[in-house]
């Protein structure tokens, strides 16, 4: 009889996937865990209570990240949807698409380092507006490319039909295009939200440590060797994407066009 090894491998895969989540929560509950102890001397909610008393400024960082990511998602999805129409109906759409790919595949941190001079001159250095603008610059090409498949012949025919039936531009958007694109817009919104939520390098350059998003906090705690607070920040960072995943897997699965 042949032994079926697949269930064992699958169980192992499940354990490996769940392990980081369990370990990070465990680490966030621990303190005074010195080498070579396998078990920490303290396990409890001390760290979480401290965070909710705002001593470590983590709650503030959580809400800063939320505000930044929501702003970036709103601006990039809206502009990406509206501008992509002009780009993907243009006769030179291949060249325009290529131009959108340049900022998209460049490492955001390098992009930010080369742009920081302009941000400094415009007074956008070291503040939240600057971080939103910088993140918008990298999220916009993603949103634009995301809608590339939407603007096809079929949609164009619908638009022409509305025009033939006497509908104006406003009606074309509200009665046809937006209802048709509703699902895509929602996915793009959450994916651009996550691009911003996960961003570290660009935020550290443009925010110069003054705008403390959760990713910045994680790195600060690593530098301070405060791994328990680091793990706690990681838990806060992972929480929204897991919730989004629960509602719809496509919110998190970025196929990068």
């Amino acid at each position: 009889m042949r032994l079926n090894w697949k269930p064992f491998v699958l169980s192992l895969v499940v354990l490996l996937i769940l392990f980081p989540f369990v370990y990070l929560v465990f680490l966030s509950l621990a303190s005074e865990w010195r080498f070579p102890d396998v078990w920490p001397s303290y396990i409890g909610f001390k760290n979480w209570v401290t965070v909710f008393n705002s001593e470590a400024g983590l709650l503030k960082s959580f809400f800063s990240s939320l505000v930044i990511s929501l702003s970036v998602a709103v601006f990039s999805t809206t502009s990406g949807f509206l501008i992509s129409k002009a780009v993907f109906y243009h006769p030179k759409k291949r060249v325009l698409t290529l131009l959108a790919y340049f900022p998209y595949i460049l490492a955001p941190v390098v992009f930010a380092a080369c742009l920081s001079f302009f941000f400094l001159k415009m007074g956008l250095f070291g503040n939240m507006t600057g971080v939103v603008v910088a993140q918008f610059i990298i999220a916009f090409p993603y949103a634009l490319l995301f809608f590339s498949s939407f603007w096809n012949e079929k949609v164009k025919s619908y638009e022409d039909l509305v025009a033939t039936l006497g509908g104006n531009k406003w009606q074309t958007y509200t009665k046809v295009l937006l209802p048709l694109a509703k699902g895509l817009i929602l996915i793009c919104f959450f994916q651009t939200f996550l691009i911003s939520w996960f961003e570290y390098g660009l935020t550290s350059i443009i925010g110069i440590g003054k705008v403390q998003t959760l990713t910045i906090k994680v790195f600060l705690f690593i530098k301070e060797a405060n791994y328990f607070y680091g793990a706690l920040s990681c838990c806060l960072l992972i929480f929204p994407p897991v919730v989004l995943l629960y509602f719809n897997k496509r919110y998190v699965f970025k196929k990068f066009v």
């Binding site: 499940v14 996960f198 992972i238 994407p241 995943l245 897997k249």
Partner: peptide, 22 residues
């Protein structure tokens, strides 16, 4: 499984780096 397999996508690079270090 179709939910579990998506979970790693919810983990950003900085958390993966931190976890690997730990």
């Amino acid at each position: 499984m179709s939910f579990i397999i998506y979970l790693p996508l919810a983990v950003p690079g900085i958390v993966t780096g931190f976890f690997t270090f730990q």
